[in-house]
Computed example of a mutant assay.
Amino acid sequence: MTTALTVGVEEEFLLLDPETGVNVPAAAAVLAGLPAHLRGQSRQEFRHSMVEMVTPVCTTLSEVGEHLRRHRRAAAEAASAAGCCLVAVGATPVAEPRLTVTDNPRYQAIAEHYGPIVRDPAVCGCHIHVGVADRELAVRVGNHLRPWLPVVQALSVNSPFHGGVDTGHASWRSMQLDRWPTLGPTPAFASAADFDRTVALLVGSGAMLDERLVLWYARPSSRYPTVEVRVTDVCLTANDTVLLAGLVRALVATATAGIAAGVPAPEVPDGLLRAAHWNAAHQGLDGTLLDLRRLEPRPAWDLVDDLVEAVTPALDRHGDLAVVHAGLARLRAEGTGARRQRQMYARTGSLPAALAEMAAG
């Protein structure tokens, strides 16, 4: 049996006032309140109103799910003790009165370099790492992922609210982050050397502060021997994250097998790729997505079905097929995180009440 590719997940969360829904700068207290054995799996984030939890390296989706649920429970309890709620939404839904960056020297350098962009309210993503043999392979896998990542993004949309109102977008996080240079669809590269040359030129231009500030939707991790997919909003539930982890791992495995067999990466025009990502962030699964293989708009769920068909052998090899099918059936019935947020808001009649319900869940 083929050895399972490893997978790990980083999740960022907002800390919100339970009465108003406003961001609360309580990250230090929340991290200090975590059980000692979990503090090594937490990180201080860019904002005082954010915390990040990181799973260990896992080989099964059941492991991923166990760690995600344990981390969410512990962080939620620590947040409650600090007088706030831990909420898994992709963008600041109401307001962030204190727009300051944490004291991490690197974050301070980023703030000085990019100026007012850094003072945009906090956003939270989910980053999925899949183990690969080497950096060369990681770069080539990124080329193969390009036409599929808008579909992954559409599955994950979870930030419809900003400034206390519905933005009309399913992922406001994606729209907000579009202001950052070098954040967006991954360019195609001929090799790892080509990747490094491009990054060096971008650093020289000032668009990247340094070689670590590669913010593309898929990249060779600067820290681990992995492909890191970072296109998705943080998910409303751990089950949603498990689904994405299974699909992303299967995409990486499928790409790796294709590369070994000499299958070339699909050629995707950069302009259409960017449009496909905007489309995914705007509509999620509630409408059409741009099919980058046929070059035509198609019903979103048809593209999801195509994605699953393409990666089914990899899902089967990893023992993930049943979990992914169940997760997609639930998502088809309940809707994306963005749709569920809107439903909670419609039911409660109050955005702070809806956010409190999300935290309770």
Score class of each variant (00 low, 15 high):
residue 313 P to I: 09
residue 162 H to V: 15
residue 207 A to K: 03
residue 210 D to R: 08
residue 162 H to R: 15
residue 315 L to C: 05
residue 208 M to A: 14
residue 77 E to P: 09
residue 123 V to H: 12
residue 155 L to N: 14
residue 272 L to G: 04
residue 19 E to Y: 00
residue 146 R to F: 11
residue 226 T to W: 07
residue 22 V to A: 11
residue 213 L to V: 14
residue 245 A to N: 05
residue 360 A to I: 11
residue 214 V to D: 04
residue 48 H to S: 01
residue 7 V to D: 01
residue 226 T to I: 09
residue 115 G to A: 09
residue 256 T to V: 14
residue 61 L to V: 13
residue 133 A to N: 01
residue 305 D to V: 03
residue 49 S to P: 02
residue 112 E to Y: 00
residue 193 A to C: 01
residue 129 H to G: 06
residue 351 L to H: 11
residue 26 A to C: 00
residue 110 I to G: 03
residue 250 A to V: 06
residue 327 G to I: 13
residue 87 V to Q: 05
residue 171 S to N: 09
residue 3 T to S: 12
residue 43 R to E: 12
residue 214 V to K: 11
residue 161 F to P: 13
residue 219 R to G: 01
residue 254 T to E: 08
residue 102 T to R: 10
residue 273 L to S: 09
residue 342 R to E: 09
residue 276 A to D: 09
residue 8 G to D: 04
residue 361 G to S: 14
residue 228 E to G: 05
residue 329 A to E: 08
residue 184 G to I: 03
residue 174 S to Y: 15
residue 182 T to R: 14
residue 158 N to P: 06
residue 210 D to F: 05
residue 7 V to C: 13
residue 108 Q to K: 14
residue 81 A to K: 09
residue 105 P to Y: 06
residue 265 A to V: 12
residue 85 C to W: 15
residue 132 V to N: 00
residue 174 S to G: 09
residue 306 D to V: 10
residue 94 V to S: 10
residue 239 N to H: 15
residue 267 E to M: 13
residue 86 L to T: 15
residue 94 V to G: 12
residue 220 P to V: 06
residue 241 T to G: 00
residue 202 L to R: 13
residue 85 C to E: 15
residue 345 Y to K: 05
residue 29 A to T: 03
residue 9 V to W: 00
residue 181 P to L: 10
residue 267 E to N: 06
residue 324 V to T: 00
residue 138 A to R: 06
residue 66 E to Y: 05
residue 170 A to R: 13
residue 90 G to T: 11
residue 265 A to P: 01
residue 94 V to T: 13
residue 328 L to K: 05
residue 55 T to V: 12
residue 21 G to N: 03
residue 100 T to G: 07
residue 250 A to R: 02
residue 235 C to T: 15
residue 214 V to Q: 08
residue 353 A to W: 04
residue 10 E to T: 02
residue 14 L to N: 04
residue 149 L to V: 12
residue 155 L to Q: 08
residue 348 T to N: 01
residue 250 A to W: 03
residue 189 F to E: 08
residue 210 D to I: 06
residue 276 A to M: 11
residue 242 V to F: 08
residue 206 G to D: 07
residue 208 M to K: 04
residue 324 V to S: 01
residue 27 A to F: 01
residue 314 A to K: 03
residue 219 R to A: 05
residue 189 F to R: 02
residue 133 A to M: 02
residue 292 L to A: 05
residue 221 S to F: 13
residue 14 L to I: 06
residue 144 H to C: 13
residue 56 P to G: 13
residue 325 H to T: 08
residue 13 F to D: 02
residue 215 L to P: 00
residue 19 E to P: 00
residue 89 V to N: 10
